[in-house]
Design a protein around this nucleic acid. Structure first.
Length: 541
DNA sequence: CTAGGGTTAG
């Protein structure tokens, strides 16, 4: 803003930016009316933005009294709602509708990014398609990078990764945010069921996160410098590949390029190390983080949980509460998961109850999923089924599958058959469901039933994809790593790791084990490039 | 003068 502009530099605006409560905001608002500031778009937009964060209804009252709101003001209010008031998506769309009905104004490139963001999840996904049509209708090409990126993200969120990729390939000079978007889209697609059902995409298990690594390589050949967000995606891709060596490489990259080890990066690294089988490295990192938020704790508790250290997970859960951090939805998930894996059924049930009793929150679907897993795994299959039927929301396939799994382990055919029936209704094309039941029959020598299930599967036209090993991973590993000039042969990686340790010490972090941060045994050092990624990924099959 | 990207489990 030009400093000579008397409106933009009006002293009242200083007061406005300092308002923390609705009460003080109202005082400043009154002053703005008497000084005539409310007749101008810029101060009005400031007022609208702030008031919508403090009291949305007040913001709407102000907005509705504006005689002819400009597109600028509409955009301000819409974006404020989509970023600060995520539960009011409908309101954002009704404002957009008012833009469309208004003959004197037209949506512009500032209107769409926040609306696409609001379409990021159910039940708004299909609205994005209409918005895309509107972009074609109202905006001139070429679209600016904000519009392009938000569009790309929308398609990625819908699972239409190929569309997102197509859009990305149309962009000649992607900026940092655009790179980050496409990288995170590929990085987090690790579940094969997620994209096989959307067809066209490679059914190879490791395909998508691997693509993120290729793209990262490509990004490094461009002039755009990776930042924290980029590395979160890259580390996440490594985690989902179970590719420890690339993960370590990314960690080295963080240190070498002075990427800030913020909560996000820290959490991604903790989770990567624990998913790649290196719980000790995960814990070292966790321990050395100068500060930890709830997500760091979640990742670490989750790490203990999947490695079967239920008690350590619970210890950390208690420690976290003592630190004054409030558990979130994921905390409950991972902590209950920890209980489930070591058979601490009562403790797990207690945590489930505490969601409502201690924190006054309604348990969500995923919490019921944990509860059912907890009961089912421990053999209380009947009880698990009851809970599943009692829960206030409609159970999804994951829940029925969990019950089916429990029924299989504990030989409860009756429940198993019920669960399968539900599953086939929900997911008629997923081979795994049939296989689970068929294995259950096989385990008790009911071969006729095995045959019957296999036939049922055949009748539905379902084929079981054979499991594939990750032969390609090693070639790709090499390519990925050699894309960087500091060619990281195994030996070099570990030299660098020691450097990481020293650097961290310089920053005042004290590694727990001696002077070397990463203490990995000789055999693993020898063959780290292939050994870990193969072993870890194989374990996941 | 307004706008876009990241973390957790299943």
């Amino acid at each position: 803003m030009n400093s000579s502009n008397p409106i933009a530099t009006h002293p009242t605006l200083n007061y406005l930016s300092k308002c923390q409560t609705l009460c003080s905001l109202k005082q400043v608002h009154a002053q703005m009316i008497t000084t005539g500031l409310t007749l101008h778009t810029y101060p009005l937009s400031k007022l609208l933005y702030l008031s919508s964060t403090l009291a949305l209804s007040y913001a709407l009252t102000i907005f509705n009294k504006i005689p002819n709101p400009t597109i600028f003001l509409f955009n301000t209010l819409i974006s404020s709602i989509t970023t600060n008031q995520k539960s009011h998506t409908l309101l954002a769309f009704s404002l957009y509708e008012r833009i469309l009905c208004n003959k004197t104004i037209k949506p512009n490139s500032h209107t769409y990014p926040s609306l696409f963001k609001a379409c990021g999840s159910h039940p708004w996904l299909h609205h994005g398609l209409a918005l895309h049509a509107h972009v074609l209708k109202f905006l001139e090409t070429p679209y600016d990078s904000f519009v392009q990126t938000s569009l790309l993200n929308f398609y990625a969120n819908c699972g239409k990764l190929l569309v997102a990729r197509y859009l990305f390939d149309q962009i000649s000079d992607p900026d940092l945010a655009t790179w980050n978007s496409v990288l995170s889209a590929y990085a987090s697609c690790y579940s094969s069921s997620y994209y096989v059902s959307n067809s066209n995409v490679s059914s190879e298990d490791s395909g998508l996160p691997m693509e993120a690594l290729y793209l990262f390589n490509e990004m490094q050949n461009s002039l755009v410098k990776p930042n924290e967000v980029t590395l979160v995606a890259v580390i996440g891709a490594c985690a989902n590949l179970g590719a420890l060596s690339q993960g370590i490489w990314a960690h080295v990259f963080v240190v070498k390029c002075n990427i800030k080890l913020n909560y996000y990066v820290g959490t991604a690294l903790i989770s990567m190390y624990s998913k790649c089988g290196c719980l000790d490295l995960a814990y070292q990192l966790f321990d050395q983080l100068p500060e930890r938020d709830i997500l760091c704790y979640n990742a670490m508790i989750g790490g203990f949980a999947i490695h079967g250290y239920g008690h350590r997970a619970l210890e950390l859960y208690e420690k976290m509460k003592i630190q004054g951090l409030v558990p979130d939805d994921v905390t409950f998930v991972v902590t209950m998961c920890a209980c489930s894996h070591v058979g601490l059924v009562e403790k797990g049930c207690k945590i489930f109850e505490s969601i409502k009793e201690d924190y006054g929150r309604e348990p969500k679907l995923e919490h019921y999923a944990c509860l059912i897993d907890l009961l089912g795994r421990s053999g209380r299959v009947q009880e698990a089924e009851e809970k599943l039927r009692e829960m206030p929301m409609k159970p999804n396939a994951i829940l029925w599958r969990s019950l089916l799994g429990a029924a299989r382990i504990h030989g409860n055919l009756e429940v198993g058959e019920v669960a399968l029936k539900q599953l086939i209704e929900l997911e008629p094309e997923t081979s795994g469901n049939y296989v689970l039941l068929s294995n259950m029959y096989a385990s008790i020598d009911r071969w006729e039933d095995v045959k019957r299930v296999r036939k049922l599967m055949k009748d539905h036209g379902i084929h079981k994809m054979p499991g594939s090993s990750l032969v390609e991973l090693n070639g790709a590993t090499h390519e990925f790593l050699s894309g960087d000039k500091t060619h990281p042969c195994t030996r070099e990686i570990y030299l660098k790791l020691e450097e990481v340790g020293r650097r961290l010490q310089q920053y005042g972090h004290k590694p727990r084990t001696k002077e070397v941060l990463f203490d990995i045994d000789e055999e693993e050092k020898e063959d780290a490039l292939t050994y870990h990624s193969e072993r870890v990924v194989r374990q996941r099959h």
